[in-house]
């Protein structure tokens, strides 16, 4: 290993064999280097005059942002360090100071696989270090996330999309993934809603044997016809398509409620999934007189066909 000044133009930026850093915080690092200089030189592997980053990828990016042309770095020759040693230096140094974000974790797992480690060794040896459950089933999914395009990995690193969403996107073909990603960006769903979105889209497309782009295009059209924020409407459309009988029953219930023209202060609810044929009627009254009137109204309400039908909205009203 020797210390030397290396032109930044000779750094193999796209070669992510050992480095996995991704995500925000680059501004702070850039500002720090500008103020006090580079305190810890990056480590590079000299491969025939091109330099592969072992450690310090973010520092190098910061230098590039600052318009520097050279970097003072520690240089390893290929005969001085094995690929696994190089990877380990970066991984363990990073782990000592911070938790890796999901995009970095998945990339690190892919690098280990590329280095020839068996899935069993990776699962037992590295999953715990990354805070992942020691289950081989997840391995392939994480590996596939590491192959997502940079734009998606950057969003994963920044927490704008969840690991579950990334896993789902990774299961899709390229054109499906592009359309899902476009939809997600447009819907700007919260992290919590993304999980539901991915599950709904996956389930409906498999059940109905519909392609994801076709499904999302039709959901988008339906959502645009509704009032309110696009993401919330789109999610509601997806829920209704996933649970069509439940949605129909809910619509029928609402129709009957409207038909009842409930007096002010009256509220009728039922089990959210209609599992129990019970209605809960709430009314508010202040004073004895109002209370008496409410009871009279309630008694009248109970005799209405629509009220009876609320319990069984699938049935037709009896003829009078």
């Amino acid at each position: 290993m020797k210390r030397a000044a290396v032109p930044l133009s000779r750094v193999a930026w796209r070669n992510r064999r050992f480095s996995f850093s991704r995500g925000g915080g680059l501004e702070e690092l850039t500002a720090s280097i500008e103020k006090v200089g580079l305190l810890d030189p990056p480590e590079l592997l000299n491969k025939g005059g091109r330099y592969i980053v072992i450690r310090g990828a973010r520092r190098l990016q910061a230098l590039r942002r600052l318009g520097r042309k050279h970097v003072e770095a520690q240089i390893f020759g290929e005969d001085e360090i094995s690929p696994f040693q190089a990877w380990s230096r970066n991984f363990h140094e990073n782990r000592a100071f911070r938790n890796l974000n999901p995009a970095e974790g998945c990339t690190a797992l892919r690098q280990l696989a590329d280095l020839g480690l068996s899935p069993q060794k990776i699962v037992s040896g590295y999953f715990p270090l990354l805070g992942l459950p020691r289950r081989e089933g997840g391995f392939e999914a994480y590996l596939s996330v590491a192959h997502l395009p940079d734009t998606m990995l950057d969003l994963l690193a920044d927490g704008a999309i969840t690991l579950g969403t990334a896993v789902y996107l990774a299961t899709l073909g390229e054109s499906e993934r592009r359309s899902a990603f476009r939809f997600l960006k447009k819907a700007s769903l919260s992290v919590g809603r993304q999980r539901e979105w991915a599950r709904l889209v996956a389930d409906i497309s498999v059940r109905d044997e519909t392609s994801v782009p076709a499904l999302l295009a039709s959901v988008s059209r339906a959502a645009r016809r509704r009032h309110g924020q696009f993401g919330a409407s789109a999610l509601q459309v997806l829920r209704e398509r996933r649970f069509p009988s439940l949605a129909a029953r809910r619509r029928a219930f609402q129709r009957l409620l409207r038909r009842l023209r409930l007096p002010p202060g009256f509220q009728v609810t039922t089990h959210p999934f209609f599992e129990k044929g019970e209605l809960h009627v709430r009314f508010s009254a202040s004073g004895e007189k109002e209370y008496g009137e409410a009871l009279v109204r309630l008694e009248r309400l109970g005799r209405e066909d629509s009220f009876q039908l609320l319990m069984e909205p699938g049935k037709r009203p009896p003829r009078k």
């Binding site: 498999v206 996933r242 009988s245 439940l246 029953r249 089990h271 999934f273 209609f274 599992e275």
Partner: peptide, 28 residues
């Protein structure tokens, strides 16, 4: 879903019942 990725069982219209278990929507 993990053990039987091709299974259509979880794709049914299953909703939480009174005991919290997922079951087909009652009319179904």
């Amino acid at each position: 879903r993990r053990r039987f990725p091709g299974s259509h069982l979880p794709l049914g219209e299953l909703v939480p019942g009174l005991d919290g278990k997922l079951r087909y929507f009652r009319p179904l």
